[in-house]
Nucleic acid binder design. Sequence first.
RNA 1: GGGAGAUUAGCUCAGCUGGUUCAGAGCACCUGCCUUACAAGCAGGGGGUCACAGGUUCGAACCCUGUAUCUCCCA
Length: 880
Amino acid sequence: MEIAKTYDSAKAEQTWYQYWLEKKFFKSTPDHRTPYTIVIPPPNVTGVLHMGHMLNNTIQDVLIRRARMLGFNACWVPGTDHASIATEAKVVALLKEQGIKKSDLSREDFLKHAWDWKEKYGGIILEQLKKLGASCDWDRTRFTMDEDMSESVIDVFIDLYNKGQIYRGVRMVNWDPQGLTAVSDEEVIYKEAQSKLVYVKYQIEGSSDYITVATTRPETIMGDTAVCVNPTDERYAHLRGKNAIVPIVNRVVPIIFDEYVDKEFGTGTLKVTPAHDINDFNLGQKHQLPSIDVLTQDGKISEAAGAYIGMDRFACRKQIIKDLEEQSIVTKIEDIKNKVGYSERTNAVIEPRLSMQWFLKMDTISKPALDNVLNGEIKLIPEKFVNTYKHWMENVHDWCISRQLWWGQRIPAWYDSQGNTVVAKTKEEAEEKLRIKNPNLKIDDIKQDDDVLDTWFSSWLWPITVFDPQVIKNGKDKANTDLNYYYPTNDLVTAPEILFFWVARMAIAGYEWLAEKPFTNVYLTGIVRDKLGRKMSKSLGNSPDPLDLIEKYGADGVRVGMLLCSPAGNDLMFDESYCEQGRNFANKVWNAFRLIKGFEIANTEQPESSKAAIQWFNNRLSEQLGIINDHYSKYRMSDALMTTYKLVWDDFCAWYLEAIKPEFIDGKALPIDHTTYSATIHYLEDLLKLMHPWMPFITEEIWHLIKERDEKDCVIISEWPQSLSHLNEPLLKEFEVAKELVTMVRNVRAQKQLSPKEKLDVIEKSESSKSHFDNTIIKLANLSSYSYTKEKVENAFSFQINTTEFYIPLSMNLNKEDEINRLTKELEYNKGFLKSVQTKLSNEKFVANAKPEVIAIERKKESDALSKIKTLEEQLSVLN
RNA sequence: GGGAGAUUAGCUCAGCUGGUUCAGAGCACCUGCCUUACAAGCAGGGGGUCACAGGUUCGAACCCUGUAUCUCCCA
């Protein structure tokens, strides 16, 4: 069979993904094996594959593929998240393009449009995941708004409400005036901004005196209901019991005293606007101040303000400063830096706003989720995130779970016209409950809450309901087979950004409803940045399209490139050159295979050099496999990959294949013997297995090109190689010396400008004769002979490896001066080294305190150095 | 403002319990090679005051204190 000169990644990707699907290799059903489970962090239905997904899902695929090969029943559950705000915004925008306003549609009609959108575009990202090779059990694909998934969200709400964990109340929320919804604390991004601190004089009632307040938000002046100073601030002590007059609206408000006020900031005087600032709200509660809401929900000045009605909040800020200046009551405008909150979804400036929302109490419910991370039952990788997690969980706030949107699970709360509220799954049930409170209830008076639940309030159930959506309703005693088998899942791979949004809340849900953790290990990836360290984002345009990368470098190349630069939990500075490295590696593997495949096999005797190389590689592979497994067990993904990379490239290609490669005689390659060939194929197969999780496509392709195989004989379901029970360490060390020797000979050739074709002799000064690798060395270094002597050899190039001396007789004359220089340099280095060792050994405290092993090592260093020095001196004396 | 982490070669990072000739890897770079698997390659090579200043110790990249810079989280 003719093997193509270059590897065609596109073809292999197409062929093998299809084949794996057909043979149902990704499919998992409960059986006698131990399960290994991952649930995908469901990407937004609105999402398209970006580099973050690429990283995240490649890691999951590596883990799941290796688990499959280790004999676990591997199950990777895929799916998408309905993403209330993002999706609703998308649909609203699309309708707008068609000239339809959301406000003109009924809830039902709008949802119809939203579902249409979801059906049409919602699966794109999952299709893209297939391109990178994701081996998900696609039959298990879930959506957070699937009917049964949604039902469980409602059940959970009702359950928590009945447990008294959910309440409704007026609170200061983070209002997104563009999305027209409240968002949770976690969805607010604080950014530093240049703001103006405006100093405004408020007249003291019944006096010509003024008090000056400093504010960054003059547009809320109309909502002021007090002026506050610190009680210890002597500057204002005389104002106790006085009132101030709010400009513009001429409202008389009390001057109150509270230690909250920072004497140093501004003038030490605070205008209190309880409706528009969380701290002012708290002050207002404490001092029983009224709240005046001067903003509308879309961020305009409201009727209640009494001035500037209908003006946009930012326009009003400018205008009001101008007007106050005209009244000559602005004493100063200062440029300051402060933090301004922006909506994660719409990027609008968040407006703290009082509104009626639903909340989940977090204090007691979050306890087990904290304890079980602290006691190691759930592991965060890397560990440093435990601190962050702990800090958040210990200071957790009640969770605002209502959103003023339509796309999502509608809150199962029902109201009558009398102000009664009940929580019930259906209107019928609600009617029953309401009728108890209100016997005159009319059916038409029953109204369901208009709001939906926060998306995270549905995705926190993900690891549970993807397996058994009924378990909330039925109780964990009646959990189905899937849940009993797959839960708790093994590993969760996600971004640290959603540690609180999602990870913490899944842990809470797991303990709340199943009394068990949802996952054992949480692997937190870094953020993909460009090489300037900027986060990759659409708006910056600094993110390559992963699908373009796949086309350019092959899926395997991109996967390798991605993971080469991804230390756990640290951000990765991505650069396309990593993908290039990945592609080059694939090319190397392809060519190694081409070489092997091109061998002509014959019934010839196995050369000693091959026999020794096989023995060595057998041990080497086993040794490195141990290291690779260890890296995996510690989730050091890039280390596991790099160890595999070097095992293949350096050990297998550069040393092993060179050692067993048949020689050319008269321009014709000799055949290879059967024993060596089959060992080589065996090693290649083992290496393909080790590479498979990283490079699924090329490994499967080569696996099948090696020979005709049964339809289910695929590397994807092959068995992960086993380590030897006993490693031959001395043999491994001996080969390291052999490598050094070969390198030395190559160096001599380069230095003396000898052709690689010219054969040389190497003589080892040694008591014994013959070692394992003599013939291998002869071959690799292109020697005519490798011999032993007990005597010094004169007029030869000489060098030492460890304490052994070697000679290479050369036909040409050695340049004496060069040799003397070289040897003198080495001598000096060794003398210096000896001195440092001897200083250490003559230090009584060292000898008294250091461990015996350490002292023994130092003694060995001393004697080795002495022997080296002796040899070098002898060599030099000969030259002189 | 409070907390966490980081700083090692040009870049990205390892360095696990303080002790092997310990200062490493990959990439990049330089030199020489189109040697019949591979120039997406082969063979060689240079490159670091381990952020800075102290301290502990027989011994510090590693432990402690302080300083600087950066990143993240929370308010």
